[in-house]
């Protein structure tokens, strides 16, 4: 277990008329090697929650443990925590500032006080991992395309070599190609480097495709925490929270209602295609 969230609540403006409860008694365990997707309606508290995980926001109540040590202890090194738990914000390209891409990626490791060699080694590795061509390393980050900028920014966090990488809607505002590139690169990091991933997303299709654990937030609380297959079965409850299941789930439920003999817990196109083919074959045999 890398991270443990224990009874965490976050209340803004306590005691004033504008009091808002952003998080309500959250309990969570995050284990090594998981690919977790975090979904929820805007304002459900998911962005607030991820900022607690690397200590950017301090909980009003409750505790968070990194490898068994409470991060709110006086002798706990926050900077070190942030290198272990990397957080990529929404539109991360808005944080680029150096004169060239390579220098920008070096910013994180430099803050960790590493040697020059180690800094550059990590920066190279990170840029390679996000698949940014070497010809861009020396160009200004502001001259890159939208998708490239975003990958450079992700490399900036990756260069700190985090054990857990949290990404807050990393594909927002990109075109389909840019979306696929980013997601593929995240999946590769998960597969090849064994980085634990927490992906905040609005796309149920992406969630279904990549995640093996799905956490649903609603009004500051955890509504579901299970495998995507099992969570998407509750698509009617998800709809009440302003969410939805992948379109495939709706297709399968519709088919079942229309009298086809199919299971409804398919969440990807491939699964659904296989299921429909099997059903059609079976029906032929039955005839």
């Amino acid at each position: 277990m890398i991270l443990k969230v224990e009874n965490v609540s976050q209340i803004y403006g306590a005691g004033t008329p504008t009091e808002t409860i952003a998080l309500k008694n959250i309990n969570l365990e995050i284990n090594e090697g998981e690919f977790i997707a975090l979904i929820g309606h805007t304002g459900s508290g998911k962005s607030t929650l991820v900022q607690h995980l690397n200590g950017l926001i301090k909980a009003t109540e409750g505790k968070i443990y990194y490898r068994g040590r409470c991060i709110y202890d006086d002798d706990f090194n926050m900077k070190e925590l942030r290198s272990h738990v990397g957080l990529v914000f929404q539109y991360p390209e808005h944080q680029l500032f150096e004169e060239d891409v390579f220098k920008d990626v070096c910013f994180g490791p430099k803050n960790l006080g590493l040697s020059k060699e180690e800094i550059e080694k990590r920066a190279y590795a990170a840029l390679k991992a996000v698949g940014l061509d070497e010809s861009f390393y020396k160009s200004s980050p502001f001259e890159l395309s939208g998708g490239q900028k975003r990958r450079a920014a992700i490399a900036g966090v990756l260069a700190m070599e985090p054990e857990v990488l949290i990404l807050d809607e990393p594909t927002a505002g990109l075109d389909p190609l840019g979306r696929d590139e980013i997601l593929d690169c995240i999946y590769k990091m998960y597969k090849e480097k064994g980085i634990t991933i927490i992906l905040v997303s609005h796309s149920m299709e992406d969630v279904a495709k990549y995640a093996d654990r799905l956490i649903v937030m609603n009004k500051g609380e955890i509504a579901f925490d299970d495998t995507p297959h099992r969570v998407f079965k509750h698509y009617k409850e998800l709809e009440k929270m302003g969410l939805a299941a992948p379109q495939v789930t709706y297709i399968m439920n519709r088919l079942k209602n229309e009298g086809f003999a199919v299971d409804t817990d398919m969440i990807t196109v491939d699964e659904a295609a296989d299921a429909i083919m099997n059903m059609m074959k079976l029906e032929k045999i039955n005839d």
């Binding site: 389909p176 379109q247 196109v269 295609a273 429909i276 083919m277 059609m280």
Partner: peptide, 20 residues
């Protein structure tokens, strides 16, 4: 052209590819 299609379109396309 690096564009997407809706899931239902893709599913229909996959089924066609598999002979339905």
């Amino acid at each position: 052209l690096r564009l997407d299609v809706p899931q239902v379109t893709e599913l229909a396309y996959e089924l066609r590819k598999r002979g339905l």
